[in-house]
Design a protein around this nucleic acid. Structure first.
Lengths: 248, 248
DNA sequence: CGTCGTATTGAGGAGGCTCAACTAAGGTGG
DNA sequence: CCACCTTAGTTGAGCCTCCTCAATACGACG
């Protein structure tokens, strides 16, 4: 494969390929282990898998467009997608980046609200709405897990709001890096995979591309991070990095 | 009651007092009527009502604080609340204003993530988590409606993101007014109830109080809106108002 | 009629945006 | 294998908007 196709799965974690659809979230209730957990049991994942179609998309593929009929929901098995809307002003607002074990395609009034496009190559599980209804009817517990996941996504959207409330570009960028770092939770904390372009990041953070570039340059010049390559960032000064990101 | 206590229910709609807990949202699937609808059937509302405790709060009451144990979820019967977090920087970010038929109290890891405080006097239905679990176990359809509502709230959070992505204070303020106008959907579209303070609005929009004041003044000076009193706004020029708000 | 919280207005400064030119990297075709 | 092209990224200059600080007005309540 060509060089660009090497960008897979949001970056270099050695996680084994997921053979079953899977949902990650922090549950409502207090559990022994805090932090996000796998919601579905093996049996549940089997049930979901049986009703789903596996889809493999190359990078930059549009999965669906905003306003088109919503026939399916999707669970990401591997890879990264962006969910966005193009506004009347010509600007593009990226609502979220979605990763393995994330869910997308929740519709409104029978239509998708955002456009979803792959950032890396992506394997997804497509569940048609009737299959989903069937699943919920037979296995109410699975429906409860979807509710749990949706609440988790809602909290992430609120976190995005907090990011956008910051005035300084450097702070917003640092908070995005924190978010990306959580994706490689099992991996080393020093290196962060950044599969999306800086232009995508600008659209996510509500900044101009130039502002994102200057923010990353400043972090680099101050010796806080280092850009190993276009899609990989290394944290050099953990405490100063945290200080900037936490100062929300 | 004193004058300030006259601020009720987000403002002057002649809606009859809701005797039953109720959820408002736009469903996934295409229906005959687009726009938000009542999700629960009469029988379902009855079931929810039986397991809920009615709570009446004066204005400015804290219902719960971020980080405290999450024992209950709440459905608003009447009134307005704000859901917010106080950040390390001393700033307060209001995640959402919630109205009649809205749901709040969805926890993470057994703890509330936001602080919720009443803006007006509020009647709410409190559902303890075990009562909610019992409800879901016996009536899976109700769980489906809660899922639908949560997705709806998620979309509203994404809309909030779009608002915050705007650079101009006037545009953000106009979009907030649009949002408030939808609350009085059955009511005249010319007058908008604005139960919260301008300071709250600033915290919601990610602006300084002064910026909100100047934005509203500018809309007023241009003859687009008129501030009838501190909590009521009248749209004078519908088309110019829309043009500013839509130009997201 | 004084006090407190909310609201308003002005002056000055910081930060991000736009516009514009330019560099770097990846992909294509001869 | 290289010239070319396209996309992504970088940097600088000047403008614009919002922020901060500070002082003042207003309304509700005691």
């Amino acid at each position: 494969m060509a060089k660009t196709s090497d960008r897979r799965s949001g970056g270099g974690t050695a996680a084994p390929a997921l053979r079953q659809p899977s949902l990650l979230a922090i549950p409502f209730l207090k559990l022994a282990s805090s932090g996000p957990i796998e919601l579905l049991s093996d049996a549940q994942r089997q049930q979901v898998r049986q009703r789903a179609t596996v889809r493999d998309y190359p990078a930059r593929t549009v999965v669906y467009r905003a306003g088109s009929p919503a026939d399916s929901v999707f669970i990401i098995g591997e890879g990264v997608v962006k969910s966005y809307r193009d506004l009347a002003s010509g600007r593009r607002r990226i609502a979220a980046f979605l990763f393995a074990r994330d869910l997308f395609g929740l519709a409104e009034d029978g239509l998708y609200v955002n456009t979803v496009q792959t950032v890396t190559t992506v394997r997804a599980y497509e569940l048609r709405v009737d299959a989903l209804a069937d699943l919920f009817a037979h296995y109410p517990d699975i429906e409860a897990q979807f509710l749990c996941k949706t609440v988790h996504v809602l909290r992430e959207a609120q976190h995005h709001n907090i990011i956008m409330g910051r005035r300084d570009a450097v702070g917003r960028f640092a908070m995005l890096l924190q978010l990306l770092r959580k994706q490689d939770s099992a991996h080393i904390r020093r290196d962060i995979a950044m599969p999306m372009s800086k232009s995508d990041i600008a659209n996510y953070l509500g900044l101009s591309l130039e502002a994102v570039v200057r923010a990353s340059r400043r972090l680099e010049r101050q010796g806080i991070v280092e850009f190993v390559d276009r899609h990989q960032v290394r944290i050099l000064d953990q405490s100063r990095f945290e200080a900037i990101a936490q100062a929300a």
